[in-house]
């Protein structure tokens, strides 16, 4: 098992390398020099200062050398300084150690995605299993319809509708940000509720689409498994149906779901751009969007790379989950 993990880790290295290469090339193949935007902001900049700036970013060297130098820096997680007016180090903007954990951008994005994940798993597995065991029932058909709508629903539109209904019309939930303006003045319980109430809509929206897909997938995987011989054997030896489904069938039906979850990580991280922009959540996705709009190259390269790394970590976790769930993989070692 340990050897398998090491092998998977080693396999990740070329992919990681490729991710950094693509993040680098996208920025550098774009027309104009990355420092143009910096000098445009300050028209009074002298040619000498511009030259110094270009030296600093090694723009006077061939692209391949620039990439090497950049790679050398980012190994130490030094992604350089942001081009925005605050000129803070890029990493500090994503993970500001001076701020409480709950306010760090990367943490906010991870937190929302992890809560979403937990909810998707907790709901889609039982839904998928019960749709499969009640195949073609009214319940199954209702679920199938919901799933199709969930697939087709543009998340940002659904967000607007819910904001209109719960935020504007009923006035029950806040529609923007992560905490209220008077947050600091609230008592502890009030603070906790304030945080939670700001998260309800975003988490619901981001869970909805995944919920549809995963429960559908769980259903077909379960349908496939209950046709297998070992399930018939379990039934034949007189095991109660509950035990057959939840003990013998479920475990095998879960395997493809784990793969699917690993594959859905990049979509979720990418989706946080839309979600955080709609709800005004100060996370990494929102920062990425702002950086793209202001052409803050170091910031964009950094978040692209981090997004890729998070995907790899997600895939690795899915592999570990697969290994824990499937004794055959462990036995192969």
């Amino acid at each position: 098992m340990f050897a398998y993990l090491i092998k998977r880790l080693l396999e990740m290295i070329p992919t990681l390398f490729g991710i950094t290469l693509i993040s680098f090339l996208i920025i550098h193949l774009a027309p104009g020099k990355p420092t143009d935007i910096l000098t445009e902001l300050n028209p009074k900049i002298t040619p000498e200062a511009r030259e110094r700036l270009e030296k600093m970013y090694n723009l006077d060297k061939p692209v391949i050398v620039q990439y090497g130098l950049w790679l050398k820096r980012i190994v130490k997680l030094n992604f350089g300084e942001s081009f925005s007016t605050d000129r803070r180090p890029v990493m500090q903007k994503i993970w500001d150690k001076k701020q409480p954990l709950l306010d760090r951008r990367l943490f906010i994005t991870l937190m929302i995605n992890l809560i979403t994940f937990a909810i998707i798993l907790a709901i889609s597995i039982p839904i998928g299993v019960s749709s499969a065991t009640h195949q073609n029932s009214l319940y199954d058909k209702m679920m199938t319809t919901t799933v199709f709508i969930g697939f087709a629903m543009p998340s940002f539109w659904f967000a607007l509708l819910l904001m209109m209904f719960f935020g504007v019309y009923l006035g029950w939930l806040p529609i923007s940000g992560l905490k209220s303006l008077n947050y600091d003045a609230l008592p502890l319980l009030g603070k906790i509720w304030d945080r939670i109430s700001h998260l309800i809509l975003p988490v619901f929206i981001s869970a909805f689409g995944g919920l549809a897909g995963d429960s559908r997938f769980m259903r077909s995987s379960m349908l496939e498994v209950v046709r297998q011989d070992y399930v018939t054997v379990a039934r034949a030896k007189g095991l109660p149906e509950k035990k057959v489904i939840y003990k013998h069938a479920l475990r095998n039906a879960l395997l493809p779901l784990i793969t699917l979850i690993g594959l859905s990580v990049p979509g979720m991280i990418g989706g946080s751009v839309i979600l955080e922009s709609v709800f005004g959540i100060p996370g990494m996705g929102q920062l990425f969007f702002m950086s793209v709009m202001t052409r803050d190259y170091p910031m964009v390269m950094c978040i692209l790379t981090i997004g890729g790394m998070l995907t790899l970590v997600g895939n690795l976790l899915a592999d570990i989950g697969y290994m824990l769930a499937d004794p055959r993989i462990r036995a192969r070692q």
């Binding site: 920025i27 751009v273 997004g307 890729g308």
Partner: peptide
């Protein structure tokens, strides 16, 4: 594999920015 590892929406945004 590499293309699938970078969140597609990030990639699209980054290119469109330029």
């Amino acid at each position: 594999d590499i293309m699938l590892s970078i969140p597609t929406f990030f990639l699209i945004l980054a290119v469109i920015a330029f």
